[in-house]
Amino acid sequence: MRSALLGVSALICISLMIMMSTVQTKNGKRKAAPGPTPIPFLGNLLQVRTDATFQSFMKLREKYGSLFTVYMGLWPVVVLCGHEAVKEALIDQADEFSGRGKLASIEQNFQGHGVALANGERWRILQRLSLTIFWDFRMGKRSIEERIQDEASYLLEEFRKTKGAPIDPTFLLSCSVSNIISSVVFGSCFDYEDKQFLNLLWLINESFIEMSTPWAQLYDMYSGIMQYLSGRHNRVYYLIEELKDFIASRVKINEASFDPQNPRDFFDCFLIKMHQ
């Protein structure tokens, strides 16, 4: 009896989901850019291969033009193809396209906070604040340009150590760029062999890799179900939480020696601006 009830419940849930997805796709289709007709629950996954997304989009572009809509599961996605389409959207109509789409796989970490993931007035406030801080750095005692020059000198020394031998520069270039960001945000650079720095780079790389996996994409498309299930799709959450813990520890270090008259980095400036 219990198994029968579970089977009926599952059937009802699936039926409701298909009905909801049908309503969503029909309502969304009325206002969205043209595109292939989605089917309930799956959307356009038959036309867009997750292992060959770019190629699938290019094929759809031939039929629907440089602006079209596809449904990744239950969610509509507007696709812009080509320089002119992107320029028109992000520059000519910047206000209309200034919003941020939600990624369920990382929304649980940030919940709409942060410059990259915020929306509306919250995003505009954070954007203005960040731009003001970076402008202050440009005019301050030690500009970003000077930090870049210092790191470039260090990078050249690392290249000289190879004595002309063939190398893969990916690691060194990643360290260099990351150190410039660290200098601005944390107020200090790291040695390229520093274990804490290497772990930070690993966390960042793994997070981006994990967000690109089919598991994360499946979570983004069907978060209503996936959030209640265990599995690989939860890994990105724990990676980003570890990143947040690292940043929180750096903020505590700043707070312990904070001097509002002598800001050293982005964190210090942020604290000053938020308390003015």
Rank of each mutant, 00 (worst) to 15 (best):
Leu11Ile: 12
Ile18Met: 10
Thr22Phe: 06
Val23Cys: 02
Gly28Val: 00
Gly28Gln: 00
Lys29Ser: 08
Ala33Trp: 03
Pro34Gly: 06
Gly35Arg: 02
Leu45Pro: 14
Val48Pro: 15
Arg49Pro: 15
Asp51Ser: 15
Phe54His: 14
Phe57Asn: 04
Leu60Ala: 05
Tyr64Leu: 07
Phe68Ser: 08
Thr69Met: 07
Leu74Ile: 11
Pro76Ile: 00
Leu80Phe: 08
Leu90Lys: 13
Asp92Trp: 07
Ile106Cys: 07
Phe110Glu: 01
Gln127Glu: 12
Thr132Val: 12
Met139Leu: 12
Arg142Pro: 01
Arg142Gly: 05
Ile144Leu: 15
Glu146Asp: 14
Ile148Ala: 03
Glu157Tyr: 01
Glu157Lys: 09
Ala165Trp: 00
Leu173Pro: 09
Cys175Pro: 07
Cys175Ser: 09
Ser176Ala: 14
Ser178Gly: 04
Ser188His: 10
Ser188Leu: 01
Phe190Trp: 02
Phe190Tyr: 10
Tyr192Thr: 02
Glu193Phe: 06
Lys195Asn: 12
Leu198Asp: 03
Leu200Gln: 08
Leu201Pro: 11
Trp202His: 12
Leu203Lys: 04
Ile204Leu: 13
Asn205Trp: 02
Glu210Arg: 03
Ala216Asp: 06
Gln217Ile: 13
Ser223Gly: 07
Asn234Phe: 04
Tyr237Gln: 09
Tyr237Cys: 03
Glu242Thr: 06
Val251Trp: 05
Asn262Lys: 13
Phe267Met: 11
